[in-house]
Every structure is written in C-alpha cells, then in structure tokens.
Design a protein around this nucleic acid. Structure first.
Lengths: 342, 342
DNA sequence: TTGTAAGCGTTATCAA
DNA sequence: TTGATAACGCTTACAA
C-alpha cells in the first residue's frame, strides 16, 4: 500500500518519469495529449506530489518560517494572518514558531527553521533578545530574514515597523490639547525598540508643549492590566496625575479599572489613551482612545518584502519600511476643547 | 559556497558518511572518540542537518499540520499555542494553515499538508464544512487526523471538544435561578456542532425549569458584536426579553452596547451571559458573566492524542474527549438570589 | 566499530 | 517531444 509516485504513473502509461514530471509541473515541453493522459492517470491513482523529494532535488523549499513571541496575541496573530494571505497565493506554506518571549527559545526556533531549509524567515524578537548572532547566522546561510515590529538594525535585511514614535507623540499631544498636564506613561521594557520609541514620542510631545519631563511619571513594567492596575490605583489615590498614556491597551484597562474603583471619572478628571486598538477598546465604557497599529498592513508589507528578496535573489536591502499608525480619539480622552473624531 | 553536508565532514576526517550520520543522530554504534571528532568538525564547518533529505530518506516527517478557521481568534490562537507547547518538545514543528472559514480553502490546505507529507493533522472545521471527503482522504493516506472544537463523527480518529451542551445549560440555568425568564439566545449557525450543542443546553435548561421554548427568541447569525447589537437593540426596545444567553462574548458585547444606549441596566433589568471568556470579559463594565472554555487544555489534549496515534501507530481510535467548561458568574448576571462566585 | 551501497521521489541535463 | 541518467543529502541493511 505504498503511495503513488511519478514512477507508478510512468509505468502505467509506458512512458518515463521525466515526462510525467514535466507534465505535472506544467512544462511546455510536453505533448498536449500525453499531458492529458498523465493527468488523468495521476487522478486515477490518487497521486499526491511529494514536496519533500521535490524540495531536496530543487534545493529550495516553498516553506517560510514565521517566528513570533507569542501567536496568541492579538497583534501577532493578525500579522501572521496577513502574512499567510500574501504568501499562500504565492505558493508558500508557513512554518510557525513562538519564542514565548525567551531568547533561548528563539535561538532554538531559528535552528529548527534552518534545519527545515525554509526559503526565508519573517520574525519579531522576543523581549529578551539583545544579541543577534543567531539571526545573522541565518542571513549568512543565505536565508533571507525580514524583521517586523521588534527589530534591530544589527540584522541585515528589510525591516517593517509601526510608527511608534509618532503614535506616542500623537497620543500625548492629544492629551495635552485636551488640557491634561500631569501625564503618566505606562510601558514595557524601554530596551525594546517599540516601547522606547513610544516613550520618545511621549517625551517629544511634552517638550513641544513646554511641559517639563518628570521621570517619576514613567513606569516600565506596567504593560499588563494587573501591573498597571496596581500602580494606577496608587497614583490616582495620591492625585499626582491627570492622565495616562499607556503603551498598550491592556495596560490602559488596568488604569480604567483602578479609576472606576476610585470613583474617578474618565475623561472628566482623568484622560486615558492606550495603544494597539485591541478589539475590546471600542466596546468598553468609556470607549478607549488608542493608537491603532495596522497589523494587517504590517504583515502584508513584511511578506511582500520577503517575497521580493526571495524572487529577485537581489542584494540585501537594509531599508526600514514604516506602517502609519492612527490615533483613534474616543471617549476616554475627549474632554472639552478637542473635537471628537472617528 | 555550498552548505556543509555529512560528506564534507566525512571527507575532512577521512571517514565515511555513514559513520558521520550515525554519530550525529546519536547511534550507540560509534566510537566515543570518533563521535567527538565528528561533532567538533561539524561545529567547525557550521554543519546544519538537512531535514528535507532526512525526511525523504526516512519516509517520515517531523512536521505536524495545524488547520484552523482563523489564527487570529483568541480561542484558536490559544489552542495553537498549547499544541505547540506539546509538540515542539516532542521534536515536531507546526505547519499552520487557515481556512478563513471557507470550505474550498480548507480543501486546499489539506492538500498542501498532504503534499508536505506531514506526520499528522490537527484541525477544526470551517463553518462551511458539511462534507468531509477531503479529510477522510487524509486519513486514508495514513495521515492521522485529530479534530477539535468543530468536529464531525464522519471523520475517523480522535476528537477533542468543549462541553458545549453543559456550558449552555449552566449559563441558562444560572439566568433562570437569577430570576430571568424571557431569555433570548444569540448564536452562530446551528449546523455547526458547537453552536448546536450550546443551543441544546439552552433548551434543556428551559425545559427543566418548565419554561416553554419560544422559537422567536433564538437568533442565528448574531455571533458578531455588530449583528448582535442590531437585533438586541430592537429586542430591548420592544421589551420582549429580560435576559440574553450569547454563544460568544463578542455577541454579548453587542447586547451590552445596545443596553447601554437604551439606558437599560445590566444586571438590574437585563441579565447577560456570554461564551468564551475573551480577555475583555473581565475588563468591561459590568464585568461579563461567561462560559470559560479551556483552550489551553483542549490544545494539550488534541496534541497528546495525535502524539499517541503517531507513536503507537495504533489502530484508529474514535473516542471523543471532552474538556470541561466553567461558568464564570460576574456582574452582568448577578441579580439578587444567586450568590456571586469567582 | 566502521565501510559499502542502495534508495527515498523528484528534477535537470543531456542526448535522441 | 521524449528518454536515460545522475544527483539532491541522508539513512540503513548488510558486510567487513
């Protein structure tokens, strides 16, 4: 009960495997009539092409490695969805790995992808990733790497990132215009490029408005709703702040909960802007103002960039593409002056 | 600049490829000293094993196909995460595909997976899937298939499902105990097993309480927040219902929005229970009562089941494993009588 | 313990 | 337009 191969088809028709191969892979150098017979027989014998053999022989693989910190994060799963949408029609399958935010795991994943001889890698770093030799190794082995979101210039190849700086800037500028002044910033590790840039946007907006930067209002490690909740609760109680710019929507939800429990009205006494436009942002009350990152667009761009590198086998381009973000002003920050949009 | 192969290593050491192969794959039939030399040389030449060649030769593959309707759904991405957690340590990689809820796409995906000679498939049907020959074909080709969540008994092999009936039953029973009587049911297509079972649980709870079933309170196609919102709005206005059991949390959010806009208090005048325990369920106001499905557990069980079939190469088992669900009673349904839990 | 040799299923090159 | 043949890199009887 072995599987049907092109040899079986060839034998059944009294021709050679080469012809069958040509016919099945759409070569023009084959008689239309024989092609018909071959296709028919293939159907009849339930022939399934063997990509493993094909890959070995051709020396290339139609599989792309995708490496993300966690697949079950809204943002990443959407990026992956978009990548698939581009790459599948182009004839590629995705080998997906998660680093679980661990560097060791990330190294292992790269290794697995290389062993599997993927045609390319699209990836976003773990938060722990501070050295890049494992990724550079892939590039050295002629496996093109496209980085997205969390990226490093140390790694050759295209990068696709969100306008994080601009997002932070717009969010905080908007808060200032809405007459909030003591604006706290909740964020993740500032060693990660995305958080660092949002933070810089925050700083720039303050500076532009002539508001002195106060280090004591910036809180790293407040990116989850739990951690955010605890700190926000204390801050609100002590009445030190009148607004929060959170580098993530979950973080913002922590603030929202804390405010609710303290009986502080949003946006009345407290302004709040998140980041990411998670699906719930528009569903909670008050509806959460946030910076929308276009995961779909980002995945699309990353996949397209990789496709270009693969197909042109061109010299490595080091350009960084930027995906625009959008400030969505909703209820949680809409006090007086500013006009509501969206 | 070709890649290093075991032949290169063999040549460099004046031994044969077979020995190198044995050493590198951990066979005991090789001298400890030669093994050392081989490993050292492999390191030195930056040898990367070629899984493609290995798979072809061995006739089996360490890749598992995972096919889900959409990777960017909270539930599915968590299941995939759990599957990976089991299969990666076991030495398998995941080839992930999405059907995008389309049957044609699902058929294509199965085809790709078979072409890639995956060792097994873990899948959940698209909503359109009403015939199963493409899946049965995989089983016939000796590729074990494990179905989860959306499953069919037509396909041989293990199935892992949530306690959907029980979830629906518990949710509605709880609403009834909280003194709600006119309970509407918002759900997806009842041709999909998960929705059908939740619906049956709903019916059973009503029956048990002696409340007559009213067909006009059941709404298929109200599983998104948008569709749900529209219908809920009308229902609330017409004062025909005093509670909603939604087969999904997004659906419940639509109800919540509608109620808010109508100035109807939840849980005071309207009870609401969702399904899935999406991350936002605990963050919205009022906090949403819902039925928690254990995606993690489900993924774990599915992966373990597949592993067993693969490793034992055993006869196909047709058992259906059930993952318990939990009713999380939160604010949106906590009126008088019932005691709050969780 | 190591070597020999064949073969996994496909494709590319060359010749007919 | 088709056929013959070798090769992709690895594993595995079998022999030494």
């Amino acid at each position: 009960m072995k599987r049907t191969t092109i040899i079986d088809i060839a034998n059944a028709l009294g021709i050679t495997p080469s012809t069958v191969s040509r016919a099945l892979s759409g070569s023009p150098r084959v008689n239309e009539e024989t092609r018909k017979r071959i296709e028919q027989k293939a159907e009849e014998l339930h022939y399934q092409p063997n990509m493993v053999a094909s890959s070995l022989r051709k020396g290339r693989n139609d599989t792309i490695g995708v490496l993300v910190p966690r697949i079950n994060r809204h943002f990443f799963s959407h990026v992956v969805g978009a990548i698939e949408e581009v790459l599948n029609p182009a004839g590629f399958s995705l080998l997906i790995c998660q680093s679980h935010e661990r560097l060791v795991k990330e190294v292992q994943c790269i290794d697995v992808l290389l062993k599997n001889r993927v045609a390319g890698i699209i990836m976003s770093h773990s938060v722990e990733t501070i050295r890049f030799d494992h990724i550079i190794k892939a590039v050295n082995e002629k496996v093109p790497v496209v980085q997205f979101d969390r990226v490093s210039k140390m790694v050759p190849g295209p990068r696709v990132v969100n306008e994080n700086f601009n997002g932070g800037y717009m969010a905080v500028k908007h808060l200032i215009r809405s007459n909030y002044r003591r604006i706290a910033h909740f964020t993740g590790s500032l060693r990660v490029n995305v958080y660092d840039e949002r933070f810089k946007g925050y700083c720039y907006a303050l500076e532009e408005a002539g508001i002195p930067f106060d280090e004591s209002l910036v809180f790293e490690g407040t990116i989850t709703s739990e951690t955010s909740y605890a700190i926000a609760f204390a801050l609100i109680k002590s009445q030190q702040v009148d607004a929060f710019f959170c580098a993530g929507d979950y973080s913002a939800m922590g603030v929202l909960q804390a405010a609710r429990e303290c009986g502080i009205s949003i946006p009345g006494r407290l302004g709040l802007v998140g980041f990411a436009n998670e699906p719930f942002a528009d569903l909670v009350s008050p509806r959460l103002s946030t910076v929308e990152q276009n995961a779909y667009d980002l995945g699309h761009k990353a996949a397209t960039a990789l496709l270009q590198v693969i197909q042109q086998d061109s010299s490595i381009v080091n350009d960084e593409e930027t995906v625009p973000v959008r400030l969505l002003v909703r209820e949680s920050s809409s006090r007086n002056s500013e006009v509501k949009m969206e």
